[in-house]
Design a protein around this nucleic acid. Sequence first.
DNA 1: ATCCCATATTGGATAGCGTCTAAGCCGAGT
DNA 2: ACTCGGCTTAGACGCTATCCAATATGGGAT
Lengths: 138, 138
Amino acid sequence: MSDLLERLRGRGWRMTAQRRVVAEVLDGEHVHLTADEVHARAVVKLPEISRATVYNTLGELVSLGEVLEVTTDKRAKRYDPNAHRPHHHLICAGCGAIRDVHPSGNPLADLPDSERFGFTVSNVEVTYRGLCPHCAAA
Amino acid sequence: MSDLLERLRGRGWRMTAQRRVVAEVLDGEHVHLTADEVHARAVVKLPEISRATVYNTLGELVSLGEVLEVTTDKRAKRYDPNAHRPHHHLICAGCGAIRDVHPSGNPLADLPDSERFGFTVSNVEVTYRGLCPHCAAA
DNA sequence: ATCCCATATTGGATAGCGTCTAAGCCGAGT
DNA sequence: ACTCGGCTTAGACGCTATCCAATATGGGAT
Ligand SMILES: [Mn+2]
Ligand SMILES: [Mn+2]
Ligand SMILES: [Zn+2]
Ligand SMILES: [Zn+2]
């Protein structure tokens, strides 16, 4: 993701201060931030950036395949900068902590043709749920 | 799910016209309805039922393990009456159609200890995405 | 059959998250 | 420097879900 700005420029993106700052926030920590969390961090570097622009930019990054959306519940969507290494997620039901995980095996191969109903299946998301060590102790 | 009312009564549920109607709606079609879709169908049989009661009842059925919540995107949660036979979901990115699927293999077993980070992992959801035959043709 | 009250229901207010719009701004090619 | 199509902005808006205080009722007790 470090050369994200180069790739985006190469795709004809007009480079603006706002887009640069959003990209920097995502590049900074490999965590799963909500749009408002991204906005809060962006405001530190560019105080006048608006929520709408953060939403717009995140949406574009998702369309370009540079960032993944993670929808784990009915609260805010989260944005995952780790789009280039396939992985799944492990979520604590107590505190909401999210960890990247890399299971062995390929769930796509586990779906037989007879269970595909003629669909063109292109993608699979696996979400493990449980309790983190801290929440399990409580 | 046909003896759902019996099971609920056995658990000390106070039986009301509203709860009966919500249960009947879920029992009727094995599809994945939103809360408002459940409400729309319930109103046909009990015109004065409120949205709040539908939300309350669905939440209770989820707590009791009789119905599952399916969160596939940032639109409305869907309620799955097929809670007693484990399965996963296949979703069309075009029209949003949802199908139950039964993959072979067990994704829980595919998550090695080294990828569990001390979590107590209790549950796994798999969501396949693609295009249904109709949307793939368009 | 009637009473009673803990529990359920109700409509409307409220909140969270995201999208949209109209007006002004600005990057970058010329 | 000029120009213009794309970008940004603030705030309005929409959808989904929850909360609330007032009212109604299921069903055990009498
Ligand atoms: Mn991730
Ligand atoms: Mn299902
Ligand atoms: Zn936790
Ligand atoms: Zn479709």
